[in-house]
Design a protein around this nucleic acid. Structure first.
Lengths: 339, 339
DNA sequence: TTGTATGCGTTATCAG
DNA sequence: CTGATAACGCATACAA
């Protein structure tokens, strides 16, 4: 590993000063075209590589945005990440990313890391943030981080300058329910989801309100988690009891997978005997047989909004206070009129 | 945004010198326990945050490893990434990651970025690397990068110091084929995959050799891509012709999804009329109905090896030259004896 | 248009 | 054990 090549070397080689070389390299106007060429040429010959560390240290600013997500192997979060990355690149920023796996320690650690690296902004989606009461340690970390750099969270954090880009769970739930009700369903179960997770709570609240508004008394809620097993277990239970639902709302696409497995085992046909819909509208919903009708926020727009707002904050510009992200609703073959 | 708090501030507050503060902060032995406490306390009170930029600039070393992957939203690459991240964190390194989307420009750009950030190592899996002849621009970039920092690739790059951690496609194919043959199948189709992708070429070569070794003449190869549509299309075509296969090997789990859809439409039952297996063994294979028998390298071990070797290279230690990563074979309900 | 000198926050070297 | 000072590579205010 030979010595690093720096602008000093270029200066020597060209006989110019550091300042001129620096300016030429950064496309400063006030440098003669000829000199600029000389510098660029010398840089190429020497195999010069900028050192962003020095650059950032000097300017005390980077183009790195941190992104904290529970689990990127999940199609839902994976998609959100990919959209954010795309937008960030477009705006000249780089995303530095970390799986939190819902571990508080990893989360707070990542915030410190970002601060140490002088990231120019942070995005956290889900994780411990989703708990009904955000852990004090995380709250504190976010608070102190937000004093230095812009922070965007998927859930509002009290007493903080962080900005919340929220997903409208009420609207999604309304979309699903109105669809099912329009098909004549009145016994509709909501399957999966923990009662200490904010988004689930919001969905359940909307579920209750909308049912009531439509004159439906019966709420069927199956507590669980967000995976395949949870949908499976719920179905098994629901259809062993008398008066089972005619339609099922799965809390995630993965949960719907289990629902379909369960129905299948019980010789019930999805899309004929029982209607199934789900949240998240990832490729999983499309992949199933039959394809499952599913709803989510529009991922492209979500990613765009998140990055737009963050970049606005970074550049100290005005930023939208209200945002209305449209819903992505795909009707597939998993539903039929109630009989 | 108030002024940054640095060790200078701590030095002032404690009346110590910069050097001592620095040492105390880094847990240097040769500093009195009492002073250390004073420093730590002051740091806490001031809300001091290390500046890794300065640190790295000075030591000209970071703990950041770059990882370049085609598309992280894919369960296959997502899993590999997650395993690498886990191992990297365990070893005290941070992964900086970029989706290449198979775009040459993004790839070379990412290499420059990593060099500029003084990453301590790079991992590239797939992408343009998978093309039969690696694009010259990428090859050049890898070559010059590998002169400065360790590089690990999923495919050997000629004339380079980069290290290749390869996946044994032959072994995987053998596992699948021997299983099918042991069930009595002799008309086995290989569905999906482009003929200019190295891993596919390797799989096809193994497919041909193993069939021949078992006295099977007939090779049925359906060119395509790696998605759902490709499996679907292939099945439609295969079963419209006379003498269709009794077993299908899908080039990926996603491809198997399409295969199942196609069979379903043609009233053929997977796991009874036709046997289906696939590569990658991601949760997709498990999710399908019926679950699809699938094979892959062991992801945990792959991630571990990759990071172990890279870290060895970073620390200039000896590194394994040969690595034998075991195969992950899950038998599910998608196969039956040939009739 | 170009050059000089200084600082960004740390660590390392050399002296006490 | 502790302190002063010089790097690390770059950008910029100020001077020419």
């Amino acid at each position: 590993m030979g010595k690093n090549i720096t602008i000093v070397d270029i200066a020597k080689k060209t006989g110019l000063s550091l300042a001129t070389v620096s300016r030429a390299l950064n496309g400063d106007d006030r440098v003669r075209e000829g000199t600029k060429q000389r510098v660029l040429e010398a840089a190429g010959e020497l195999g010069y590589q900028v050192n962003n560390l020095a650059k950032s240290l000097n300017s005390s600013t980077t183009n790195m945005i941190g992104m904290l997500i529970p689990d990127i192997t999940t199609p839902f979060y994976g998609r959100i990440f990919a959209e954010c990355e795309k937008q960030a690149l477009r705006r000249g920023y780089v995303l530095s990313f970390c799986n939190s796996f819902n571990q508080l320690k990893l989360e707070t650690h990542f915030y410190s890391h970002l601060l140490a690296q002088h990231a120019c902004g942070v995005i956290q989606i889900g994780g411990s943030l989703d708990q009904l009461t955000i852990p004090a340690a995380l709250q504190k970390q976010i608070r102190s981080t937000a004093e230095k750099i812009p922070v965007i969270t998927s859930v509002p954090v009290p007493d903080t300058q962080s900005c919340c880009v929220f997903v409208d769970n009420e609207k999604s739930m309304r979309t699903l329910l109105e669809y099912l009700i329009s098909l004549g369903h009145r016994k509709i179960a909501l399957v999966g989801g923990r009662s200490n997770v904010r988004s689930t709570i919001e969905k359940r609240r909307a579920y209750g309100q909308i049912l009531k508004a439509n004159g439906i008394r019966k709420e069927i809620i199956c507590e669980g988690n967000y995976g395949q097993e949870d949908g499976y277990r719920a179905v098994k239970k629901l259809f062993r009891e008398p008066d089972p639902p005619t339609a099922i709302i799965a809390i995630t696409d993965m949960c719907a997978v289990g629902v379909l497995k369960g129905l299948n085992e019980m010789q019930l046909q999805c899309g004929r005997d029982v209607s199934v819909v789900s949240f998240d509208n990832t490729y999983i919903a499309e992949m199933l047989e039959p394809g499952v009708t599913s709803v989510s926020t529009n991922y492209e727009i979500l990613g765009e909004k998140i990055i737009d707002i963050l970049v606005d904050m970074i550049r100290n510009e005005k930023t939208e206070d209200h945002l209305d992200i449209p819903v992505n609703f795909s009707i597939r073959r998993s539903c039929a009129p109630a009989r």
